[in-house]
Every structure is written in C-alpha cells, then in structure tokens.
Nucleic acid binder design. Structure first.
Lengths: 229, 229
DNA sequence: TTTCAAAAAAATCTCGAGATTTCGTTGACG
DNA sequence: CGTCAACGAAATCTCGAGATTTTTTTGAAA
C-alpha cells in the first residue's frame, strides 16, 4: 500500500462518515498535519476524490468536500432509482448461484452489525456492511461500467446520510425489514418485487433526509430571527 | 489556468485523440520531458484522468491509458444506450427554446467542420464539435448527475474511436445524415424518433468499431502465422 | 459607524533531489 | 537448452523549500 493510496482511503472514509463536513474546505496545510503526510502525497490523493465526485476543486482556491443541496439530492435520487432499478432487474434475472450466496452472506452480515456505535454515532462497520450489501445486490448484472456508476452515485449519496442530524434509522422506519425484503425478493427471483422494494428503499431514505434538512433550515431561520431581535 | 490544469487538459485531449495508445503506460519520467512539467504537477494531473475513467493506476507500477477490449466496448455501449436514450427523452420533452437554439447552433457547427484534417487524420475540431453536439442534445434534461455520467461514458467511448484504424466515417455510412436526423427529430419534439435515431447512431458506431477490431485481430493472427513459418 | 485600501498572514502552486521498489539483463548452474 | 538467481538501470514514491496568489486583518478617512 502506497502512502497516497492510504491517505486517499482515509480521506474518502472520513468524508463518507461526515468527519469532513459537506462544503468544507480541504486545506492541504491542515490535512498535512492531520494525516501526517507531505503536500505532495495529499496533492495526489485529493484529485482522486474529485474524480469520484466526493470533492471539488478550483484553481488557486484548493479542494472542498462536495457541497449538498436539496435539489442535488433529488436529482441524485432520481438518477439512482433509474440506474439501480435497471441493474437490480438484470441482476436478479441473470444472477448465478454464487451471486445468491454472496447476497445472503452480505445480508447476514448487515443484519448482525449494530447500527449505532458506542458513542451513539452511526457505526462505521454498519456503513461498510450496508455499502457492501447494495453493491452485491447489483453485482449479478454483468455490466461493469453501469455497476461502477451505481457505486459512485451511492457513495455521493452517503455524504448526505452522514450530513443529516437525525439518523435515518429513526422516524419509525424499519430499515432492517427493508433490506430483508430486498434480499428475499432477490433470492425468490421476484423481479417486480425487488424493483419495488429497492425503489422505495432509496426514495424513503431521501424523503427522510429532505425532511431533516428542511427542519434544520427552519430552526436556523428561527435562530437568526431570535438573535437579531 | 494552473499548471496542473493545463497539463490535465492536454493529457486528456491526447488520450481522446489516440496520441496515447490504449493500454500504454504513462510514465511520469517520459511525460515530464514531453509536456515540460515537473513530476509533482504530473502526479496531480494523472489521478484526475483515473477518476474520469480514462486511465488506470496500480501502486508501484504507475499509470496506464485505459485498456480496451470488445467486451468492454459492448458493455459500454449498452450502458450508453440505456442512459442516453433516457436523457434524450427527458431532454426533448423538457427542453426550452434556449436549448433548441443551442442544439441548432451545435449542429450547424458540427455540419460545417470537416471530418478529416490536412494530414488525413481525424480533425480535432470535428471531435470537439461532435462531443459538444451530443452534450447539448442531452442538456435539455435538468438532471445534472445523469448528464455528467453520460458525458463521462462518451469520453471513454471516444478512446475506442481513435483507437480504430478505419475512421467510422467510412463503410458507406452517412454520419452527417444521422446527426441531422437527431437534430431535426429533437426540434420537432418527436420523442420516439429521436430515441430511435440516437440509439442507432450509438450502436452503429460500436458495430463498425468491433468489425474493425476483429479484422485487425484476424490480420495480426495471420501475420504471426506467416512469420513463424 | 461604515467603507475602502494597504499590509500582513496563510495557503496554494511549482520544482528538484533523495530513498525505495520494480523490471530487464546477464551469467551461472542443472 | 532451459531455469533461476543476482546485478544494474530505470521508474516510482516521498519530501521539504521557494515563488505566487488569495484571504484576512488592520487602520485611516468619510
């Protein structure tokens, strides 16, 4: 493992977990100290994040974590539903026995990992298991470029999850049941069933995140009003 | 324009024009001399190509231009047809008057630029106009993430065009008529017509490229046979 | 109090040199 | 003649320093 590779992985994980706030600057000087790497290494790792859509870059102004907005999230969700439903349809239709096994394994793992960590934060292990489950679900489809795109879009969407204040586990939602439904329908080769389950899974998450965002906007508006009077 | 930005643009153009052969190594030492830049600048520009899918990277082994294969091209084409037909449907449905104007302008430009350059090579201006036309065609759709993905896939596909020995203009194909048909159907808001035209446009190009590839494989097999006897 | 300009601080951009790893070559051995 | 190991060349990886640009701070004037 090369130095730049390691730093890239850590930076990526830290963005996906919300340890770098969306829209915040990624100053090379600050990161040099935080990650214990030279500027050269960082200037090699950061462009890879840009290519993955997790960061942006402007000349003479450095790097930033990708910025979030309700409009972007809605567009992102629309794109994900479009691509992932297609992929899952192909995947369930063409998936082999090995794929079935992988899916069962991924779901079992996801079902056993706790959502919350010791500190009340979202457990990083759950995030990894969740990402793996969704990746494997689509892996029965042989089209590599499309699968890569789906993974890329999911990763950007992950930024929104960790940016939300209220974990999407709440709101009376049974996320484990949703995953179980997708897994079961997939194994049963119930194509319409799995498409429906995945589609709802994605849109429900987005709706909760948008509600969270609007609630936060409302509160900050009230705060501003209270402080200015 | 920063130095790394400039080098990135030149590298990208050189790959898209076939001046760097698919699968060939991109040695930092060699590039340093060729582009007159330091290793630091190159190590910042190259990862951006990786993120765009135009290059690959392996630790301790450096960078390579993306490798090509018939299977990859077929998957790529399938993905493009899937995504671009969706986008063009949305685009033609939702496109504004400004979009119509942009499309007409882009088509006019493309129709006037010659396909071949003075040296008998594919004219770089044509490649740019062609890329612009296809981009504008889909730009009526407001979904930014999907448009970006379509552009990314098209760029990777461009590598295949310049890698082919026989330009896709040949084979009795009237590529200008295809573009005109797409443009006309789009302005007429003939959704099924434009979807059909775009779909055929993409698949025909791929078929010609695959034919070219198989012909080349056949010849090289004969050459090997002749040289070994 | 607000506005504007100049100076200071900080960050980015660029470069070349040294340490480490990989790849090709040569030579000896079976 | 084929295989394997050691040597040498080349490329990658990493780092810190200097030049340029941006941002912030400071202070004076309206």
């Amino acid at each position: 493992m090369t130095r730049a590779e390691e730093i890239y992985q850590r930076l990526r994980a830290d963005i996906l977990n919300g340890r770098h706030e969306p829209g915040s600057r990624l100053r090379v000087e600050a990161l040099k100290e935080k990650y214990g790497a030279s500027s050269g290494v960082l200037r090699e790792a950061l462009p890879r994040l840009v290519g993955q859509g997790l960061a942006t870059f402007a000349p003479q102004q450095g790097f930033r974590v990708v910025t979030v907005s309700p409009e972007h999230l809605e567009e992102l969700t629309e794109a994900r539903v479009f691509i992932e439903t297609h992929l899952v349809r192909e995947s369930v239709t063409a998936g082999t026995i090995e794929w079935e096994s992988d899916l069962l394994a991924a779901h079992h793992h996801l079902a056993r990992v706790p959502f919350f960590g010791d500190a009340g934060e979202i457990n990083e292990g759950w995030l990894n298991a969740h990402a793996r489950f969704h990746r494997v679900l689509l892996e029965g489809c042989p089209n590599r470029p499309l699968r890569d795109i789906a993974t890329q879009l999911r990763e950007v969407a992950e930024v929104y999850r960790c940016w939300a204040r209220t974990p999407t586990e709440h709101s009376g939602r049974d996320i484990a049941a949703e995953h179980k439904a997708m897994c079961d329908r997939a194994i049963e080769r119930d194509v319409p069933g799995v498409v429906e389950a995945l589609s709802r899974h994605i849109t429900i998450t987005t709706r909760l995140l948008l509600d969270d965002y609007r609630r936060r906007e409302e509160e900050s508006r009230q705060d501003r009003g209270a402080s200015s009077t």
